[in-house]
C-alpha cells in the first residue's frame, strides 16, 4: 500500500523503523515539516493525517500506508498563493526563526476544524456543551502542543484569530 502525500502516491520505506517525519524529510525531501525533538515533545513535526493533526516523529511511516498525509508544502493553492493562515502568520509576525512555524500552521488548521466540530478542551467551561466562544485561552490551550522558543506566541494567536475571522466571514 502506498502513502498519499500532498496528493501524490509514494511507496512506504523498506525499513519499518523510518518515521513518517524522516520519510518526508530524508526520502521525499519535503523538509518543510520540521524535526524539533523527535520524541513527541515539541509539535514541530505536526502534519495532517486524514485531516487530523498528528506528530510525524512518533508515527512510523508504515502506519500511514493507505492514508492521506498533508504537509506544509501541500497547503498553498494550486498557483502557489498562500493559505489564509500562512498569510496571517506573515502579517501578524507569528514567527521569528521559522522553525516551529510549519508545525504551528498545520496544527492550527486542524484545530480550527476541531473547534468547528465543537470538540471541548481542558479549559472549556462546559465540557458537555463544548466551547461556547473561541477565547484566546481556548486557542492557547489547544495550541500548547506546539512549542515556540523565539516567543512568537502572541503573533501566532493573533494570526489564528485572523484566520478564524476570515473563514467565518
Amino acid at each position: 500500500m502506498s502513502i498519499r502525500v500532498n496528493d501524490t502516491e509514494v511507496p512506504p520505506p523498506d525499513d519499518a523503523r523510518v518515521s513518517l517525519l524522516d520519510l518526508l524529510r530524508e526520502h521525499l525531501h519535503l523538509t518543510g515539516t520540521k524535526k524539533g525533538c523527535d520524541q513527541g515533545a515539541c509539535g514541530a513535526c505536526t502534519v495532517l493525517l486524514d485531516g487530523n493533526r498528528v506528530l510525524s516523529c512518533l508515527t512510523l511511516a508504515v502506519q500511514a500506508e493507505g492514508r492521506e498525509v498533508r504537509t506544509i508544502e501541500g497547503l498553498a493553492g494550486a498557483n502557489g498563493e498562500l493559505h489564509v493562515l500562512q498569510r496571517a502568520f506573515v502579517e501578524r509576525d507569528g514567527l521569528q526563526c521559522g522553525y516551529c512555524t510549519p508545525g504551528q500552521i498545520c496544527s492550527a488548521i486542524a484545530m480550527a476544524e476541531e473547534l468547528r466540530r465543537g470538540d471541548p478542551s481542558y479549559v472549556t467551561p462546559d465540557i458537555a456543551a463544548g466551547p461556547a466562544a473561541v477565547t484566546r485561552e481556548e486557542i492557547r490551550e489547544r495550541m500548547s502542543g506546539n512549542l515556540c522558543r523565539c516567543g512568537a506566541h502572541n503573533g501566532i494567536v493573533e494570526a489564528i484569530e485572523l484566520m478564524l475571522a476570515e473563514t467565518a466571514a
Binding site: G40, V54, L55, S107, Y122, I127, A128, R142, N146
Partner: peptide, 19 residues
C-alpha cells in the same frame, strides 16, 4: 463521565491524543 473527558483532555497534546 465528565471526569474522563477532562482527564483525557488534560493529557499530552491534541496531536498526541489524535494518535
Amino acid at each position: 463521565y465528565p471526569v474522563l473527558a477532562r482527564a483525557l483532555l488534560a493529557g499530552a497534546s491534541a496531536q498526541i491524543r489524535n494518535m
